[in-house]
Design a protein around this nucleic acid. Structure first.
Length: 423
RNA sequence: GGAGAGAUGGCCGAGCGGUUGAAGGCGCCUGACUCGAAAUCAGGUUUGGGGGUGACCUCAACGGGGGUUCGAAUCCCUCUCUCUCCGCCA
């Protein structure tokens, strides 16, 4: 959520920055909502002040055993007026808040302006793209090796689900343990959060109210619905919702392995082949909480922590700085890491590292107490470190050998009992 | 799932219709004393919204929501969570 004061003081500048990311801010609508809200608020507050004053007087009379009937009658009138205003007050407040909550974050000054992914900027390229004659894709490789079974997965759950078997399952598990160990060593404290969260949590990180159609929603009798997390970012960021952290705790870094669940109703037709885009996948997530003056450096650190996994596995990748039009709703600056996929002869997203400024912190009310000052919103960041399923795909495709076997990256072998080749 | 108890400020803990934003204690901060520290003494110490150039004024918040009342931390309803006992269970 954006700072309402910023909008009030510099509405045109905010509108211009939002326009950079393709969002048209209705300036007039915002102004009238803000003014309406303040007008109603002031009217109601004046009445409440009146009520408080007279109530006190009634109390004084009662204690002195004097008659207060006249005052009480007068109070009833104030109470009625107030009751009449109540609905308007709530409505004005909600309309204002909903409008504000619907605005995406402002892009950081260092983010290139652009309409879509074509304006993204490649800032780094690492590794040697393997020379493979007629590379097979991960579906062919995995199916032939008997470690991937998409047909039976479809029988169980439909499209966009996968079954991993034997060494395929073990490879997935090895990758999870490998990533967690590396990130723990890099200073991230591991957490295992709930995979089902309430609506407040989804609101805190920005999935709700705008993106409910991307989520799996559960129901239970009379209780409030719970949502399956689309990423560990949601429960881990919300860990500190409505809290004030001590400045010494920052930067605070967590890593978490979780399954991720995405409904993505609009995504049919994209990435239909293989397990690039699934309703359920595994991810190791990095989440950081930083003071505002630490946050920009923290984004660089977090991004290189994610890159370190790709480098340790010897997977060629590039780092891309997303342009204003391609960033997620809550982000103010995002780097995507894209891994080379031989079968597609292109780089595909395997990690997305974002700096949210105080956008999420304001929604989730996460603050810190600076050395000698008032509590202030901190900055949140997160990034995949990495998406496990896509790493699995990248290893199969990049490490494939002419006979269809897979060479296991050396760093991973201790996690597979020393196994050198999957065949 | 059944029965009962509870949820108050950074923490502990009183209050159970009328200057209680909240006693008391702990913690923390400032000052005095001291070469310095401890101890002691004095003072201070929640957050958010609105208004004002400013000193400042004002509203809201005692788990969440709703109600009763001139007035609610205090009474009623409801939801959530925690604890104890019983049942069930990976």
């Amino acid at each position: 959520m954006l700072d309402a004061n910023l909008l009030r003081n510099d509405l045109d500048a905010v509108a211009a920055r939002l326009a950079d990311r393709g969002y048209v801010l209705d300036v007039a609508a915002y102004r009238s909502l803000d003014e309406r809200r303040r007008a109603v608020l002031q009217e109601a507050e004046a009445l409440k002040a009146e009520r408080n004053r007279v109530s006190e007087e009634v109390g004084r009379l009662k204690r002195a055993k004097e008659n207060a009937d006249a005052l009480i009658a007068q109070q009833r009138e104030v109470g009625d007026k107030l009751k009449a205003l109540e609905g308007a007050e709530r409505e004005a407040e909600a309309a204002f808040r909903d409008f504000l909550a619907g605005l995406p974050n402002l892009p950081h000054a260092s983010v290139p302006a652009g309409k879509d992914e074509h304006a993204n900027v490649e800032v780094k390229r690492w590794g040697q793209v393997p020379a493979i004659e007629k590379p097979l894709d991960h579906v062919e490789l995995g199916t032939k090796l008997g470690i991937l079974d998409l047909d039976r997965a479809a029988k169980l759950s439909g499209a966009r689900f996968a079954v991993l078997k034997g060494l395929g399952a073990k490879l997935e598990r090895a990758l999870i343990a490998f990533m967690l160990d590396r990130q723990a060593a890099a200073g991230y404290e591991e957490v295992i959060p709930p995979y089902l969260v309430n609506a407040d949590s989804m609101y805190g990180t920005g999935q709700l109210p705008k993106f409910e159609q991307d989520l799996f929603k559960t129901s239970r009798g009379d209780g409030a619905p719970l949502y399956l997390i689309p990423t560990a970012e949601v429960p881990v960021t919300n860990l500190y919702r409505d809290e004030i952290l001590a400045a010494e705790m920052l930067p605070l870094r967590h890593c978490a392995f979780t399954p991720c669940f995405r409904s993505e109703a609009g995504s049919y037709g994209k990435d239909t082949k293989g397990i690039i885009r699934q309703h359920q996948f595994h991810k190791v997530e990095l989440v950081a909480f930083a003071a505002p003056d630490q946050a920009e450096a923290e984004l660089e650190r977090l991004t290189s922590n994610a890159e370190a996994i790709l480098e340790a596995l010897g997977l060629p990748y590039r780092r891309v700085l997303l342009c204003t039009g391609d960033m997620g709703f809550s982000s103010q600056k995002t780097y995507d890491l894209e891994v080379w996929l031989p079968s597609q002869a292109t780089y595909r997203e395997i990690s997305s590292c974002s700096w949210f400024g105080d956008f999420q912190a304001r929604r989730a009310n996460i603050r810190f107490r600076p050395k000698d000052g008032k509590p202030a919103f901190l900055h949140t960041l997160n990034g995949s470190g990495l998406a496990v399923g896509r790493t699995w795909v990248a290893i199969l495709e990049n490490c494939q050998q002419p006979d269809g076997s897979i060479r296991v990256p050396e760093a991973l072998r201790p996690y597979l009992g020393g196994l050198e080749v999957i065949r």
